[in-house]
Design a protein around this nucleic acid. Sequence first.
DNA 1: TCCTTTATTGATAGTGATTCTCATTATTAT
DNA 2: ATAATAATGAGAATCACTATCAATAAAGGA
Lengths: 149, 149
Amino acid sequence: MPGPRWRGNFKERGHRMTGPRDAILDVVNKKQGHLTADDIFFEVRKSYPGIGIATIYRTLDLFVRMGLVNKFDFGGGKSRYEFTSKEKHHHHLVCKNCGRVVDYDSFLDEETELIKKIEAELNRKHDFKIDSHQLDFYGLCKSCQREVK
Amino acid sequence: MPGPRWRGNFKERGHRMTGPRDAILDVVNKKQGHLTADDIFFEVRKSYPGIGIATIYRTLDLFVRMGLVNKFDFGGGKSRYEFTSKEKHHHHLVCKNCGRVVDYDSFLDEETELIKKIEAELNRKHDFKIDSHQLDFYGLCKSCQREVK
DNA sequence: TCCTTTATTGATAGTGATTCTCATTATTAT
DNA sequence: ATAATAATGAGAATCACTATCAATAAAGGA
Ligand SMILES: [Mn+2]
Ligand SMILES: [Mn+2]
Ligand SMILES: [Zn+2]
Ligand SMILES: [Zn+2]
């Protein structure tokens, strides 16, 4: 029997399923979160010691193109990767001091409705073909609120 | 009579108004858009030839802290700076292919209302003190829609 | 205006994340 | 198994941005 559907359709898309790709996919699947390339590098080395950092970047880029992983940039100079779960669409809350990232999914129905309207309007007015959006909130997390006066 | 209010209150905040700062402020004010540090560097050199790139970065950082300029990261590896106009709050539409950035301000009332609700909820639920948000749409601009099939 | 204090600047070296190059290796189809 | 070639790892190269530091120039007072 074939692997789970979420493992992607490599063959069908002309890609080979290799050891490094399998190991990286495992890591982003198990370690939920908003991982940096380095986080993933160090974790993958446990199960695939010889892997190189270039392979991490190349593979993450491939996964993003395949829709298996989402890439984010919350500032701070490092890209962050998150497994594209089958779960709820969500957005992010970023602490400007410590970089902590929290998922949230409040008011999704209202948001979805508004987003849909905006997308239609932007499509019409600016002739843009929109395929994604990102709504982030920035501020200070609980512990950073005291530290930073 | 003192300079326009938008030039900021340097003295009051303990900063000196200098030639480089004046030249940079002029550029970000006149050349509206979403400029990179390099865009600004090359433009400022016309009126202030001896300026160094480090001063561009330092000054933009100061302007951001003073609220005169907003700093964005739309991906692509370069920060983008936009003069904080007194005009409407707006968000961005980014072409994933050519990097073009378009301002939009549709459905602002509805958006503001929703954002306010979300902020209150996030504040309550996650104990975050939110001070800004960013809503970006990503897609393909008109001309890039054909190029990239 | 001249002087003193010290914030600011420019040149340049340094940093850190990401990408590129290329010889070697591993997959896939036959 | 073999051939064709996609993928990998090591390390060099990029590139945006930051840190360092001696020289310069605002600001305020005499
Ligand atoms: Mn998330
Ligand atoms: Mn804008
Ligand atoms: Zn924090
Ligand atoms: Zn475009």
